[in-house]
Design a protein around this nucleic acid. Structure first.
Lengths: 252, 252
DNA sequence: TCCAAATATTTTGAATTCAAAAATGCCCTC
DNA sequence: GAGGGCATTTTTGAATTCAAAATATTTGGA
């Protein structure tokens, strides 16, 4: 995966007359955009230690570009909250404290509540049917204790609700914040206890019900509380991890 | 051409003659940050025609910097949604369609609803007392038909609610979206009819009441509907303006 | 005169260069 | 041997340079 990056042959000097074919990616029009999305993915996927200093030069080598587009990308990522820029001291991957995660979950909850409300105003029958289908798929995964399939269907449901809200500003904001907490959220789900799982399933029943009745206020309410519960589970996990880490560090 | 060095030199702030001195700002440590916040303000305040092409060189002259920090600032503003970057075609101030404004107001409504809910959990007595004071101040302005004072107190109340939510991610998001719609929102308030004004005042009574009872769900509900009503007023105004503009352009 | 092709100019995207700030290492003192 | 100041190296911030793309202008032809 990482060698895809190096192999890409995006050499700073355009020595090769013909452009290498790259049908997979939609071929960003600018190096800036290319570097931005690759670096964002790279960070979101957890390939860089949080808090560690990242020399620009190393990243330039990694992506095979000069510092100009890389630095542009870093400024954008800083404005997205993924990176900290210390003046004259370089960039580092932002570390999230417990309170940061709390804040992010609350904002996600607010956005999902909004999405639910708007979705009730605008959702089509076809969209609702698709969500219903995903819900049953998720329920099947729950019965089979297939965590991965459950998690996947769950994500698709929440995404479908956001999409049904038909608000591009909301979608963009949702994507940004989802990216920030993706790592902690995923591992929290993996570690979630069975009882939380059952509870989450019940909440999803209520979500589908409110959506079916197009009751925006109620769906909004349920979604916010649903996220609050996810938040609690994630924080349990995060605190356990912090303790474990601290112990490991103390013993080493 | 070499005097760019000297011109910009040690005083990037004082350089551009037409910009008023602003000692309030904490003097950004980097040119990038300085250019970013000045350009953002410049756009938000409506000094650039929407949709018009903005050559980088002109902006460089205006701010007295080279293209590097300016281009970095443009990328960040593009990610904030204030600017459109057309590949190989330069930057232009983003134009907001009616549906863009609708989307922005809905997101603002979602954020305010969230702020209200969180504020009910966390607000102190002192903060509530201050909001109460602002409310009565606003009511006084309403009775005196002092639009400007009313608008000011109104803004402060909403800001105070967001602040009481104690969520920096929320505050940052709120500030970003508020910046995007500031112009249209202000002019809409100026143009709002008297009956909308009375209605808004009644809504604010309900806001204060729900906040006093720390009823997060209800406050959330009221705030979202309050923003929806603001949205309707703003859209009325916007459509009227569009018609007037179209007529003016047709006749010129 | 008007349109279109060819050429010249401008503007953009990105690499390179240069100065200043920070980090590193060295030596000296204690 | 430890700590502190000074020189060296590295890294960052920002200007400049250069090539490619886009835009404007000129020219040729009907």
């Amino acid at each position: 995966m990482t060698n895809v990056h190096q192999d890409r042959g995006l050499t700073p000097v355009q020595e090769a007359g013909e452009v290498a074919p790259e049908p997979a990616r939609p071929a960003a029009v600018s190096l800036h955009g290319e570097v931005l999305s690759r670096l964002r993915d790279f960070i979101v996927e957890g390939n860089l230690e949080g808090g560690a200093r990242i020399p620009e030069r190393r990243l330039c080598e990694m992506f095979g570009v000069s510092r100009t587009p890389l630095r542009e990308a870093l400024k954008v990522l800083a404005s997205e909250g993924l990176v900290d820029l210390l003046p004259n001291r370089g960039a580092r991957v932002r570390e999230f404290s417990v309170s940061d995660v709390t804040e992010l979950f609350d904002v996600m909850g607010g956005l999902e509540a909004l999405a639910g409300r708007l979705a009730c105003e605008r959702i089509t029958e076809a969209e609702f049917a698709e969500i219903e289908r995903l819900h049953h798929e998720m329920y099947g995964a729950y019965l089979k204790r297939d965590m991965h399939a459950y998690f996947h269907a769950n994500q698709l449901i929440h995404q479908a609700i956001v999409a049904a809200a038909r608000n591009s500003v909301l979608s963009a904001a949702y994507a940004t914040y989802a990216g920030r907490i993706r790592r902690v959220r995923y591992s929290a789900n993996l570690a979630s206890k069975r009882d939380r799982w059952a509870e989450a399933m019940r909440e999803h029943e209520a979500i589908l019900d409110a959506l079916g009745r197009r009751d925006g206020s109620e769906l909004s309410e349920i979604l916010f509380r649903h996220l609050r519960n996810k938040e609690a589970a994630a924080l349990d996990h995060l605190k356990g991890e912090a303790v474990a880490l601290g112990a490991a560090e103390a013993s080493s």
